[in-house]
């Protein structure tokens, strides 16, 4: 093939051919920007997994107790999407899990951001909260489940409180980092322009900290999504975690697999939405 032949847009999109900038580079190994999406291989990988599942189902290679057949799983999905699972609609299982995560992150942000600001802006604040935050940070939220159950039982409040704790310290640390990252010349400039302390907090320190706070939000969402499922495994009658736990008790491997797939997909979707929001809300990120 002639070197000068322009590859089709499709092959560039699939990552089978380099784009017009990378094509001119003589050095590609070690240049991270020369690595393309490799979309073709992504499609291939997903297709291979599905194909393996189909083959295993058609030839009944795996005992359904360990891994369900693809058609059986599909039938089960249609059934629980229509009738619900154990008297709870599939959408409710999903909805309640998402609701718990959003509530936990919301309250965690509400408390964590002011806490982080206090730590970043005042020596007293830093001194007071630093030991607590640094102590709580390495404790996995799951280790707090027994204590939270002892305190609050297993009702809705207990789960949201656990997620609140999971996001609280992430948000505190993110907000503190955001405050500390403000370049002193911006603060000096604002003072020289006649801004008061309160105005500097509102118009310089807060917007300057937003990128870090948003990174904290993304991390919080991910951690809380993992935590909610685990918390529901332990104690809940609704939610995706409880759905797969109950299904396990009834040896319904197909429902367990459906739950796992939905958990993975929703975690992925949350991440995509957060990235999109970040680009839309904080376009100046990394451009100071």
């Amino acid at each position: 093939m002639d070197d000068k032949t322009k590859p089709s847009d499709l092959s560039v999109w699939l990552g089978l051919a380099d784009n017009t900038f990378t094509r001119q580079k003589t050095v590609k190994f070690g240049d991270a920007t020369a690595v393309n999406s490799g979309r073709f291989y992504s499609i291939l990988a997903v297709a291979a997994c599905l194909a393996a599942w189909i083959v295993a189902s058609v030839f009944e290679l795996v005992e359904p107790f360990y891994w369900p057949s693809i058609d059986g799983t599909w039938d089960r999905l249609v059934k629980i999407a229509g009738e619900g699972f154990r008297n709870v609609a599939l959408w409710d299982h999903i909805g309640i899990s998402v609701y718990r995560v959003l509530s936990g992150v919301f309250y965690g942000t509400l408390v964590g951001v002011p806490l982080g600001f206090a730590m970043g802006l005042s020596s007293t604040g830093r001194g007071l909260f630093d030991p607590i935050v640094e102590f709580m940070r390495p404790i996995p939220p799951l280790a707090l489940i027994p204590l939270v159950i002892l305190w609050f039982g297993i009702d809705e409040f207990a789960k949201i409180f656990l997620l609140f704790l999971a996001s609280l310290f992430i948000m505190t640390i993110a907000a503190r980092a955001g405050v500390s990252s403000v370049r002193i010349s911006k603060v000096h400039a604002a003072y020289s322009l006649g801004a008061s302390k309160l105005q500097i907090l509102r118009h310089v320190i807060l917007p300057n900290a937003l990128p870090e706070i948003f990174t904290g939000l993304r991390t919080s969402m991910g951690v809380c999504w993992g935590t909610v499922v685990a918390a529901e495994l332990v104690a809940a009658d609704r939610g995706l975690g409880s759905m797969i736990m109950i299904a396990k008790n009834f040896l319904q491997t197909d429902t367990v697999v459906i739950g796992i797939i939905i958990i993975g997909l929703i975690g992925y979707i949350i991440e995509l939405i957060m990235r999109r929001l970040e680009r839309w809300l904080i376009p100046w990120k990394g451009k100071g």
Binding site: R183, K186, H188, A189, S192, L193, P207, L210, W284, K287
Partner: peptide, 15 residues
């Protein structure tokens, strides 16, 4: 405010 300041760079508000 009676003494304005112009810095080398990085003092604009990028947001």
């Amino acid at each position: 405010a009676e003494r304005g300041m112009v810095f080398q760079q990085g003092a604009l508000f990028e947001w």
